[in-house]
Design a protein around this nucleic acid. Structure first.
Length: 411
DNA sequence: TCTGGGGTCCTAGGACCC
DNA sequence: TCTGGGGTCCTAGGACCC
C-alpha cells in the first residue's frame, strides 16, 4: 500500500463539553453526564471533574465522593447525536473517506486531499477551528500513516491537541510507548504480554513472531505488527460498512425482580425494541440471544437459540426469548435483561404466503408507523399496557453512528 | 453504597455429514 | 466392525472497543 495520511479526530469529553457549551453556568465546573434512571453511571465528565478523580463508569455517589462539588447533568442524547452528525459533515468537506468509530471519534483518510488543502496539519487546523466556532468545543487530532497510529497520536495531547506521527518517527515514538496505549490491547492482553516481559511497543515489535503465535494463535502476527506501528486496515466510509451482525438491547432494571410475569413484561419490551429496530433497517435474524445478570451483579448467563426461519417481528422474538428463559431455573432476582438478534440477513420485501402471517405483518407495520410518529412504545402489545415499562436506555450507546443501521433511536 | 449499554471478533468443543 | 479426516453449523464464553 502506498503511503497514506490518516487523521483521527477525538472530541474532548464530548457529552460534557456539549453541555458546558450550551449552558454558561456549567463552564469551568466539574460536571458529570449520566443516564436518567436510578442505577446509572457517569458516561462522561468534564476535565475539571477528571482532575478531581472522577472517571467514566463510576456510580454517581462515587463521583461525588471523589469530587463533592460535582454537578450531575442528565444526558440529552438528541443534542449529542445531532452535534456528532454535523461534525461528521464538516469532515466530509475535506475527504469523502470518513469512518465514524463512535459518536465522538472518526478517522479521515486525507491522502488525496493534501494537494487541495496543502497539508494534513492545515486540514486539522481548519477542522479544529470550525468545530470550535460552530459548537464551542475542542478536539484532539492525530495525524499518522495509518489508523492505529493516528488514534495513538490523538491520545497523546488532550485536550485540544494536535499530534503528528511522521513515518520516519514511528519507531522512535513506539520504542518506549506502553503497549496498553495501543487500541486493541486491553487489560488482559497487557497482563499476558507483561508476563512475557513485554512492556513497550518496541519490545512487542521485536518479539519473535513464533513466540507470539504460540501463545495467542492467529492474533500473534497482528500483535507484532501493532508493536511495529503497522496497520493496513482501510478507512471505511459511510454507507460502505459491512452489514450489521447483530441487533440487541439490554436494560438494568430499576430494582431487582423475581416475579416471572414482570420478567416476561420486560422481555416483551426488549423484544419490541429489538424488533422495531431490525424492521426499520429491513433485517431479520435466525438466532435469538437472551442475557440475564443476577442481583449480585457478578453472576450471569447467556443462552442462544437458532431457529429454522428468519424473524424480526417483536412477538416472534419474544416467543424465542421466552422459550430460552423457560429452560432455566432462575437462581436469584434479576438485575439486567438483554435480548439480541443475530445471524442476520437483509430482507427483500416479500409478503408471507399465509393469510394469518400477512395479517400479523400488517399489524406490525401499522404499529411501527404509529410508534414512529408518536414515539417509541406509544403502541404496544397488551401485556405491557399498565404503563409499568422501565425507563429504558438513557445512556447513549457508543455504537451509535451518524448514519445507517447503527443509528439507534435513543430518544 | 454501588458498578450502563451498544457492538465486534475469536476460540473451543460437540453434532452431524460425506 | 473399526478407523480417519475435512467441512459446516451450533453453543458458550472471553476479550476488546467506545
Amino acid at each position: 500500500m502506498t503511503c497514506r495520511t490518516i487523521l483521527h479526530v477525538d472530541m474532548n469529553a464530548f457529552f460534557a463539553s456539549v453541555e458546558q457549551a450550551n449552558n454558561p453556568d456549567l463552564r469551568g465546573r466539574a460536571i458529570a453526564v449520566t443516564g436518567g434512571h436510578g442505577r446509572t453511571v457517569i458516561t462522561t465528565s468534564s476535565y475539571e471533574a477528571r482532575a478531581k478523580g472522577v472517571k467514566t463508569g463510576m456510580a454517581i455517589w462515587e463521583g461525588k465522593r471523589a469530587c463533592p462539588e460535582l454537578v450531575i447533568v442528565v444526558g440529552d442524547n438528541r443534542k449529542y447525536t445531532h452535534t456528532s452528525t454535523r461534525i461528521n459533515e464538516i469532515f466530509r468537506d475535506y475527504t469523502p473517506e470518513v469512518e465514524a468509530f463512535s459518536i465522538d471519534e472518526s478517522w479521515l483518510d486525507v491522502t488525496h486531499s493534501l494537494s487541495i488543502f496543502g497539508s494534513a496539519e492545515n486540514i486539522a487546523y481548519l477542522i479544529k477551528a470550525r468545530i470550535k466556532h460552530l459548537f464551542d468545543i475542542t478536539c484532539s487530532i492525530g495525524i499518522a500513516p495509518n489508523k492505529l497510529l493516528a488514534k495513538l497520536a490523538s491520545d497523546m495531547q488532550k485536550p485540544d491537541g494536535l499530534t503528528v506521527i511522521a513515518p520516519e518517527n514511528v519507531s522512535r515514538i513506539l520504542e518506549q510507548m506502553p503497549i496498553k496505549d495501543l487500541c486493541g490491547i486491553g487489560r488482559k492482553m497487557q497482563r499476558h504480554l507483561n508476563m512475557m516481559s513485554i512492556y513497550t511497543c518496541g519490545e512487542l515489535g521485536r518479539c519473535e513472531e513464533t513466540r507470539l503465535t504460540r501463545k495467542f494463535g492467529i492474533i500473534g502476527k497482528r500483535l507484532k505488527e501493532m508493536g511495529q506501528g503497522k496497520d493496513s486496515s482501510p478507512v471505511v466510509r459511510f454507507g460502505r460498512e459491512d452489514d450489521v451482525k447483530s441487533v440487541g438491547h439490554s436494560m438494568t432494571l430499576e430494582r431487582d425482580i423475581d416475579d416471572p410475569s414482570e420478567i416476561r413484561r420486560f422481555l416483551l419490551q426488549l423484544s419490541e425494541m429489538v424488533g422495531s429496530r431490525a424492521r426499520r433497517y429491513n433485517v431479520s435474524g435466525r438466532t435469538v440471544h437472551l442475557y440475564v445478570r443476577y442481583a449480585d451483579f457478578f453472576s450471569s448467563w447467556g443462552k442462544q437459540s437458532t431457529l429454522k426461519s428468519y424473524i424480526n417481528r417483536s412477538d416472534e422474538i419474544y416467543r424465542a426469548a421466552l422459550a430460552i428463559l423457560n429452560t432455566v431455573e432462575l437462581e436469584q432476582p434479576v438485575r439486567l435483561l438483554g435480548i439480541s438478534l443475530s445471524n442476520l440477513k437483509h430482507q427483500a420485501e416479500q409478503l408471507p404466503l399465509f393469510e394469518e402471517e400477512r395479517k400479523k405483518l400488517f399489524a406490525t407495520q401499522a404499529m411501527d408507523a404509529l410508534n414512529d410518529r408518536f414515539g417509541r412504545m406509544s403502541v404496544m402489545f397488551g401485556t405491557l399496557l399498565p404503563g409499568k415499562e422501565n425507563a429504558g436506555s438513557h445512556v447513549i450507546p457508543p455504537s451509535w453512528r451518524p448514519d445507517g443501521v447503527k443509528n439507534i433511536d435513543v430518544l
